[in-house]
Every structure is written in C-alpha cells, then in structure tokens.
Design a protein around this nucleic acid. Structure first.
Length: 483
RNA sequence: GGCCCCGUCGUCUAACGGUUAGGACACCGCUCUUUCAAGGCGGAAAUACGGGUUCGACUCCCGUCGGGGCCGCCA
C-alpha cells in the first residue's frame, strides 16, 4: 500500500474549535499509523473573513495538542497561479463558463424558485452567450463569476464509511467555482490543492458530504485520480445541533487558558467517533497511533459532554508529577518567588519543598490547573470565617474552645523538627479518642477557614509550628468573643 | 420545503447473525473518613417503532418516526 498523504484544511475565520481539532486528530492519527504524511493547509481564499490572528491560533493550538504537520504550512492565498491555470483550463475545455448575471437578478430568481417549492438552481442563462458576446462583456469590464457546468443526471459517489451515495445533479444547477481567475472559491480551491498536494484521503466533517460530488466533478473534468473521502460524524451540542459558541463550546485555546491539559482533550476527542480495542478508555497519543484504524470510525454524531472532559482532565492532572505541575502553575495572584522561596500574600514564606506539598494537596481536589492553587489558597492569603464554622456537629462553643486549647498545649510541646504530618496525626488521634470530629474539624477550620480542605495535620506541617499555633489562637479568640 | 446522512443506557461507546446486550462519564447507595476530593464495592439505566429474511436479528432488507447536515459570488 502506498503511504497516505492527508491534510487538515481549516479556514482561518475563527479559532480552532473542538470539531476541527478532532478532524485534525483523526487525520494525524491516520497518517502516523500508516507512516504517511500529515499536512496543514490554511484555506484563506475568503479575504474578508480570513484573519492572521485566527491562523496563528490554529497553528499554536495544533502545536499545543502535539499535532505537528510534517511539511511546511501551505496557504491558498499563496497559490493563486495554480487556481488560475485550472480555471482557464476548465473554461477552454468548455467545462466552465463566464456568468454576468447580477446578484440581485439571481437572488430574485432564487426566491421565486424557493416559494414555488423548487430547488434553487441557476438557469444556465449565460451559457447561451456566444464567445463574441462574452469577449465583448469581458472587454467592457462587466462584472462576472465563473460557473462549472453540471451534468443532467444522477451520479453515485463513494464515502469510505457510508459506501455509495446517490447525488442528483439535476437539482443543483451550474455552481460558481470562482469570483474570477484569481479568486477561487472553496469548491474549486480544495480539490485543486488536494490533487497537486497528492492527497490520498480527504478526512473531513460530515457537513462536507454534499460538497463531495461537486468536487468530484472537477476531478473528472481535470482527469485526476479521485482520493478516498472519509466524512466524520459531527460533534453536537447538548441540544443536538452542530456544536457552536452558543452551547458554550470554546476554542482549544480557551480550554488551554482555563487549565485543561492537551492529553485530556485528545483522549476526550478521540473517543467521539472512535474506540480502542477492549474496554479501556484512557489512551495516550502514541497508543492511539498504534491502534488507529479508519475502519473503526463510527458514523453517528456525538453529543459533547463537558463532564467527561473534566473527568479526563482530573485523571491526567493526578498523573502528573508535582514538578511537572509546578511548571504549569501561575502563582502571580498568591505572592512572588524570591529565589527558591515563595513569599505569599499573607507574609508566609514557603520553601520549594513546602510548595511541593501544597501542590500535592491541591491536585487531589482540582479539575483544572488553576484550581490546584485556589483550593489551597488559605496557605497564601489571610482569611476569615464565622465562628460557628468551628463547631463540630452538636458540640458547644465551650467544648470546641477547650479542645483547641488542648491541641495548642500539646502542639506547643512538640519539637520543631517533629512537627510533621504523621506525628501530628498520631497525637491528634490519641487525644481525640472516639470523638475525632470535635478535634479534627475545628483545627481544620482554624487552619484553612474552609468547610472543605485537606486534612489538618498536613496543613499544619506546611504551615509550621509557629504559624499553626497563631491560627489556633485566633480561633480561640473568635470563640471567646461575643457577637 | 427538496436532497442526503444518522438512530444501542441521560451522554460517549462495545458486541464474525447465536453474549445474562459489555465498559466509561454522570446519577444513586454502601464503604473509607474530621470535611471535601480521591479510592473500593454495589445499583438503576439502552438496542426508536412496525413489518419482513432467518432455526436464530442490535446486527441484513423495507416502511414509519425521530435527530442532524446541506441547499451562498462562506468554508
């Protein structure tokens, strides 16, 4: 079998979104699994809508996901000579022709046909023009477009997943392939590039299914080999329509900014329409490449499910080493680094070793990267809480105060170097006996100010003996106060 | 409206024409536990419907219904 050449061909009219990213992923996987080539082509023929910033977003998002193209990026705006040659060839051969009909004229016709319940199709009016008339109009600078002649019959085209699909050209009419010789439209530019770039498999979204017979027509007229077409099922929003912004669907770069990991996004995306062997669902990019088979793609559209994405993100977050996570974190809203030490907003200074412990605690409780620090922000910021929060179940203020007093006295006697989590836990276990909650809970609240947090003995170790005692004192003061 | 595609738990999906229709997320319960999260164990939950073909249908065929896509001088 010859090595496949595939392409991902987005138009830079928006940021890279989930659906396109999945298309890119499947192209990439197919290429890599077959030792083929994965190409990125920017389809920027629409000069009004194409923006450089979108192109940059697409490229950086692809890189972030690890879907690197194998060849230099191709832009359609840089290949106008190519399209011009093809357009002229099609005109010379009589497969395409100039059309001078005005937009207004066509729109009126279209509406008319629509209200009659007919498919809107071009009448073929300008096809009747003689070469002399065409030349005269061209010479006088009349506005025109270029249309492709379509046959008056039903044809069958092949989709890799769906098999033979009928298409009735009689319902279509001659369609526009270019605004002029140097301004091709999608329907023309895409097959031209696919041909000249030696693309063997066109893997794209199902929304392109109806475009396929139109493009095949160009292949036929040009006497080119037709590639294999693979149309991927769409990704749908919760309301089961094509995923879009209004579903809260975000771009890949936005997911990145929110703290999602590329491996989570990739794992989530690959399962939308494909499944590895067996019952497992956790799969790395390398394993996907090893196992990927075009035949195993399924045809039914998939509804986007944020909960599952979050599940994968938590999973991959937990698998990361603390050091890896350290590099992903943004500490700027919690204090600043002074060499290897971190000076927090509340004045506490943490060694790198302690920061590591804080990260360990945070990552257990985080869905996205920023939550790692925000779930343990009490280490960095001063906090307040209502004194009622210190009370465990139906204990009294007095009881809680006494328990905190007891803890304080014992902590006071512990040597600085023995103030570590296992030791602290041991002591707490001993004094609390079978009423653990009335010791653990108030201590935890005193140290974190939160209803939910990591265990108090772990917090205490990181805080250090002095700071811990300080916070216990504050809690006691709170309990003593009236209000 | 026309044409086309698709139809397994709520969602993502697995199942050479023969399985007690499997897994994952979410949900519920139990467990662990000072709390939260994580973990462990368990539960509820699906072949859209109607006809065929067949000894036997989630699987093949037809119809119905449902959902989606496309009908641009956008891609």
């Amino acid at each position: 079998m010859i090595k496949p050449r595939v392409r991902f061909a987005p138009s830079p009219t928006g940021k890279l979104h989930l659906g396109s990213a999945r298309t890119a992923l499947f192209n990439f996987l197919f290429a890599k699994s077959q030792k083929g080539t994965f190409i990125l082509r920017i389809e920027d023929t629409d000069k009004e809508r194409s923006l450089k910033e979108y192109e940059e977003d697409i490229i950086s998002s692809l890189n972030w996901l690890g879907l690197y193209p194998d060849e230099e990026i191709v832009r359609q705006s840089e290949r106008l000579d190519l399209y011009e040659r093809v357009v002229k060839h099609l005109i010379n051969k009589g497969y395409a022709y100039y059309c001078f009909c005005s937009k207004e004229e066509l729109e009126a016709k279209r509406q008319e046909q629509l209200t009659r319940g007919e498919p809107p199709r071009y009448s073929g009016k300008c096809l009747q023009l003689s070469p002399q008339e065409v030349n005269k109009k061209l010479d006088s600078g009349e506005k025109y477009v270029i249309r492709l002649k379509v046959p008056n019959k039903v044809i069958f085209y092949k989709d890799f997943l769906r098999g033979e699909i009928p298409y009735d050209f009689r319902l279509l009419g001659d369609f526009v392939i270019a605004k002029n010789e140097r301004e091709p439209l999608y329907l023309l530019a895409t097959p031209v590039d696919d041909h000249y770039q030696g693309i063997t498999h066109v893997i794209r979204g199902e929304d392109h299914l109806p475009n396929t017979p139109k493009q095949i027509l160009i292949y036929k007229y040009m006497e080119w080999d037709i590639p294999v077409f693979v149309h991927l099922p769409l990704i749908l929003g919760p309301d089961r329509t094509k995923l879009s912004k209004r579903h809260g669907a975000k771009s890949i770069s936005e997911y990145r900014e929110e703290g999602f990991l590329p491996e989570a996004l990739l794992n989530f995306l690959v399962l939308l329409g494909w499944h590895p062997e067996g019952d497992r669902e956790i799969i790395s990019l390398d394993e996907m490449i090893k196992e990927f088979k075009l035949e195993k793609l399924n045809k039914n559209p998939a509804v986007f499910n944020l909960g599952k994405l979050i599940y994968f993100n938590r999973y991959y977050l937990k698998k990361k080493t603390t050091k890896e996570i350290l590099e992903l974190l943004d500490f700027s809203s919690y204090g600043n680094w002074q060499g290897d030490n971190f000076k927090a907003l509340n004045g506490n200074i943490y060694s790198l070793e302690k920061i590591f412990k804080i990260i360990e605690m945070g990552k257990e409780r985080a869905s996205v990267i920023p939550e790692i620090l925000s779930s343990v922000d009490f280490f960095f910021k001063s906090f307040d809480y209502p004194k009622e929060l210190l009370v465990w179940k139906n204990s009294s203020f007095v009881e809680i105060e006494n328990n905190l007093q007891k803890i304080k006295e014992i902590f006071y006697k512990i040597k600085e170097e023995e103030f570590v989590a296992p030791k602290i836990k041991e002591i707490l276990d001993k004094i609390s006996e079978n009423n653990k909650g009335s010791y653990f809970w108030p201590l935890r609240v005193a140290l974190s100010g939160k209803e939910a947090s990591p265990p108090p003995f772990e917090i205490a170790e990181v805080l250090g003996k002095e700071k811990t005692l300080e916070l216990i004192n504050e809690a006691i003061k709170k309990l003593k106060s009236f209000q």
